[in-house]
Nucleic acid binder design. Structure first.
Lengths: 151, 151
DNA sequence: TCTAAACCCAGTAAGTTGGTAGGAATATTG
DNA sequence: CAATATTCCTACCAACTTACTGGGTTTAGA
């Protein structure tokens, strides 16, 4: 399992926000209940998301969390990077360049890691939160109220 | 860092075998020295590779390891799977099907994990050890003797 | 003022990582 | 047969990570 619960819970929670935080902020208690996740653990997840500027918090009663940007402007890669740290496969293959590897000249595997990383980034940073819920709508799995429906 | 040293050391060692184990077995001591890896740690890596049927061991003096199959018949995916265990991103996305997820019906992220896993597997299981050294030859980085050269 | 929420920090049990150490079994060479 | 070089096996370890739990503080709406 390459992605920890932090990343998986966080991504599910962000998708949850897309669906349910259109009109007003959603409190963690509700997300935790709906997604079956410990609320105090989710706190730590959202602390990271907030620090990364992906969600805005509204404190006090009737508060909660909302997306900081429209769903189609937040990529899955941004979310996972905020929660899991840099998504590198090896030191020699990470977004934006190469770092510290004394064997760069002779390493037989570096080009492979870089190629794989590029492929992964291609998916991660081209898929947005909107894509997640759109796919869901297309297959007709979703349960909650239609967030796009006029009220 | 999604791939641990076991996977990275192992892949580098397998590439090393492609280059240097054409005529006779290569002892761990030599690989460890050439790749700058602890020999006793490499032992554990090669125990896994042997159990996965990817290398054959020759015991005793003048022994060592050789590839169990030609380099173009061993994929990077096989090597990493033997060393890292199943390369799944989440429970709901692993090679050959879906397992235990009580939220399958409503999970917004499952299709994404499956799509990403498929992309990764595409690279992992279409790249062979031979491809690693071929790329190396193309860019002219390699140092050792040409294993394809007639003797 | 009551209450519901975000926020913050500390701790923790279990598992993983990246090794080290010591020795037993096996095969080759002299 | 003896010496040597190798694989093979098991146990151990310290540091780190994971997936939480708990206790309290601050903030804002009714």
């Amino acid at each position: 399992m390459l992605i920890s619960t932090k990343g998986r819970y966080g991504l599910r929670s962000m998708a949850d926000l897309v669906l349910y935080a259109q009109k007003k902020p959603v409190p963690l208690r509700v997300i935790a209940e709906r997604q079956g996740i410990s609320e105090s653990y989710l706190e730590q997840v959202f602390a990271l998301l907030r620090k990364a500027g992906l969600v805005n918090a509204i404190r006090g009663s009737y508060g909660g969390y909302v997306l900081a940007r429209p769903a189609h402007q937040i990529t899955v890669g941004e979310v996972l990077q905020a929660l899991e740290g840099p998504l590198t496969l090896a030191n020699c293959a990470h977004r934006g360049g190469t770092i510290e590897c004394d064997k760069m000249d002779t390493c037989l595997t570096m080009p492979f890691w870089q190629k794989l990383s590029a492929k992964i980034d291609e998916v991660l940073f081209s898929t947005t939160l909107q894509d997640l819920v759109d796919e869901e709508r297309a297959t007709g799995k979703r349960q909650g109220p239609d967030p796009q429906a006029p009220i």
